[in-house]
């Protein structure tokens, strides 16, 4: 492995980590803080990705005034040519995709939530979300106009085509992904290290008590699911643009499972837990992929992608047995008021 390959592996791992981090933070906000069993996380992730593909493909047709089949070779060439001819266009489409991905995911989350809001049991929403994720994948896989069905949509141009050479464009896209992940972390941290976060945890811990004490659980859960889903939509857009390709079969329920593993490993109700858990999951995922290539180069016929599931399974078992609260357990939300009480108690003790 040469230096360039190593850098490429590090950058791609960092990109996948950043995308996984956004997803884990959003699930932690939904489940770790509010107790929403979102078993359909991949649905909102995929909606972001589909939005990117759909928008990039159809806008190119509209701008060129042609009506190519978006899956045809001509359409792919048109997208790439248009990006070169109007280098600012991919960036605009990227920004539009971010907005559309977030808005579409939030809107779908809203509709799915209100469809079950009369049923108090949280697992019903979880099952509806799980089914919706799988249903949407099957529909998109078999309906070409969205993202070319089974074959997937190729030729999503890099938003930084204007940078000139592909390396600089990739680097700028990576920076964008990391910045958005950082902003997501700061956003969710700032939002929940407050009395609002405490209220969400009250809803999670005892919905009846929260309702009796005026907290409007259903209303809050709906908002949280919409925000969390919008975040997942943004992650989906970044994923599609990073790969330059979208295919429905990339969005199976196993992706949801990965995100849950990241949150459970790291520690629920704690954003640093999501940071740690998604790092572990990304390293296992990328590590086994790199190992596969490495072994193939040595002509060793071992399929290491399955090793990943074994490692994740064993890790989950160990965590549940020896550290059920996760690698970084949940802590109290120390607002100024609580810090003052802690201070007073310390003073009384001394």
């Amino acid at each position: 492995m040469d230096f360039n390959q190593l850098i490429s592996i590090i950058v791609s791992t960092a990109n996948f980590y950043a995308i996984w981090l956004i997803l884990s933070l959003s699930l932690n906000y939904e489940y770790g803080y509010t107790g929403i069993l979102n078993f359909g996380k991949v649905l909102f992730f995929s909606l972001g990705a589909y939005s990117s593909g759909f928008l990039a493909a159809n806008l190119a047709n509209i701008m060129a005034g042609v009506s190519f089949d978006i899956c045809s070779v001509e359409a792919v060439q048109l997208r790439l040519d248009l990006a070169k001819a109007v280098p600012q266009l991919p960036l605009l489409v990227f920004v539009a995709s971010l907005i559309m991905g977030a808005a579409l995911s939030a809107a779908v989350a809203y509709l799915l939530y209100i469809s079950t809001s009369r049923i108090k049991e949280g697992f019903v929403l979880g099952i509806i979300l799980l089914s919706a994720g799988e249903t949407s994948r099957i529909v998109v896989r078999n309906y070409e106009p969205v993202v070319c069905g089974y074959h997937g949509l190729v030729g999503i141009p890099n938003p930084y085509t204007a940078a000139g050479d592909p390396t600089s464009a990739s680097f700028l896209l990576s920076i964008t992904i990391w910045v958005i992940a950082g902003v997501a972390f700061l956003f969710i941290n700032k939002l929940t290290a407050t009395p609002y976060g405490r209220k969400l945890k009250a809803i999670r811990d005892n919905e009846l008590a929260a309702d009796i004490y005026g907290k409007k659980p259903s209303h809050e859960r709906r908002k949280v699911l919409m925000i969390g889903s919008a975040m997942a939509g943004v992650a989906g857009v970044l994923y599609a643009y990073y790969l330059g390709f979208v295919a429905a079969d990339d969005f199976t329920s196993l992706k949801t499972f990965d995100i849950w593993v990241a949150v459970m490993l790291g520690g629920v109700g704690n954003h640093l837990g999501a940071v740690t858990g998604s790092l572990v999951v990304t390293l296992i995922d990328r590590g086994t992929r790199v190992l596969r290539v490495f072994l193939a180069n040595l002509s060793i016929p071992l399929e290491t992608l399955y090793l990943r599931w074994i490692i994740v399974g064993v890790l989950m078992l160990l965590i549940l047995m020896y550290r059920p609260a996760g690698i970084i357990p949940e802590k109290s939300i120390k607002t100024l008021g609580l810090l003052r009480i802690i201070e007073r108690i310390k003073r009384e003790k001394t």
Partner: peptide
């Protein structure tokens, strides 16, 4: 009670 929270937090809610 909100069992994962401290006594003080239970009173702050």
């Amino acid at each position: 009670l909100w069992l994962n929270m401290s006594v003080a937090e239970n009173l702050m809610l």
